[in-house]
């Protein structure tokens, strides 16, 4: 544990240095511009200080994003429309619902593919084709179509999350359900086990390591789906809405803080799955 701290810190430090440097480089033009118009000459120190403290910088400095994050999470009431916690919750709820739907759909399709020859031959190409369509192209259509039949709010966004998250689960679970050795399947046959018994007692437990791995990918994809689902709808709440509003009004600090919030959310969610994975597989003697 201790040995890994130093390399990680080194990388973080290097990233911060590069970031601050890039902020100077990208924001210097605007600072110079303003100084020229005001008819003042900037020293190097003044220039650097200015590039790290602009209202609408091209690239906000890390401490600006940190301050924004602090102000919009800790200092705002979570019921406030300006609280990042509130927006995160909106996105999180769609993510979790979409993830649950996507995982369920993925497992159902995988079971069908493994147990049904017709599905094995026909479903997989469609599953793959579904992922080649850019989600940005199909997201507005899902929203519009569902809106037309009277479904709005959480569910359309969750559907887009599901659309992205079922794919890794199908692929992982097909592999997982097929992971038992021929010998183990023969053994089931010698006991005259029914297909259902073989599924519950052998195939499903064998597939769990694959399921957890694909659920991690699915969770990250699900979050992306929820955010993308908030972009084309002119949603007023959610991390996607924060990104969109930020880009409308040039609020780069707001965009970056929403991005960091999304990244932190993804890290926590994937980490939670990893934790459950460790506990379950250890208990099953498979880790």
């Amino acid at each position: 544990m201790k040995r890994s701290v130093l390399p990680v810190l080194t990388v973080v430090l290097a990233l911060l240095v590069i970031w601050y440097g890039a902020a100077v480089w990208l924001n210097a033009a605007w600072a110079q511009d303003r100084a020229t118009r005001a008819g003042v000459e900037l020293s190097l120190a003044e220039l650097v200080a200015d590039t790290w403290a602009q209202d609408k910088p091209k690239l906000p400095a890390p401490h600006q994003v940190a301050v924004e994050l602090w102000e919009t999470t800790v200092e705002k009431k979570i019921t406030s429309k300006r609280s990042l916690v509130y927006h995160s919750w909106i996105t999180l709820s769609a993510t979790l619902l979409g993830f649950a739907l996507g995982t369920a759909l993925g497992i159902a399709l995988a079971v069908g593919i493994v147990y049904n020859r017709v599905m094995d031959m026909s479903v997989m190409p469609w599953v793959i084709a579904s992922q080649t369509i850019p989600i940005l192209a199909i997201a507005p259509m899902i929203i519009v179509v569902l809106n037309a039949v009277g479904i709005s709010g959480l569910l359309p966004k969750a559907m887009i999350s599901m659309y992205l998250s079922f794919f890794p689960v199908v692929v992982g679970m097909v592999k997982g359900l097929r992971s038992p050795a021929i010998m183990q399947l023969d053994q089931m046959k010698t006991w005259n086990a029914s297909p259902a018994q073989t599924f519950w007692k052998l195939r499903l437990p064998s597939s769990l390591p694959y399921l957890f791995t694909s659920m991690k990918v699915a969770m990250a994809a699900s979050l992306v789906g929820a955010i993308v689902g908030e972009l084309p709808t002119g949603a007023v709440a959610g991390l996607g809405a924060r990104l969109l509003a930020g880009s409308y009004y040039g609020q780069t600090i707001q965009i970056w803080s929403a991005l960091f919030m999304a990244a932190a959310l993804a890290a926590v969610l994937v980490g939670l799955i990893g934790l459950v994975q460790r506990l379950v597989l250890k208990r099953m003697g498979m880790a």
Binding site: M183, Q187, W191, N192, A193, K201, P205, G285, M286
Partner: peptide
Amino acid sequence: FQAAGLYPWRTIGRNVSLPLEIM
């Protein structure tokens, strides 16, 4: 079989009981 093929997620007792559960 050539390999014992015990299920790692079942105890020895529960491995032995597997065919009995199935039957």
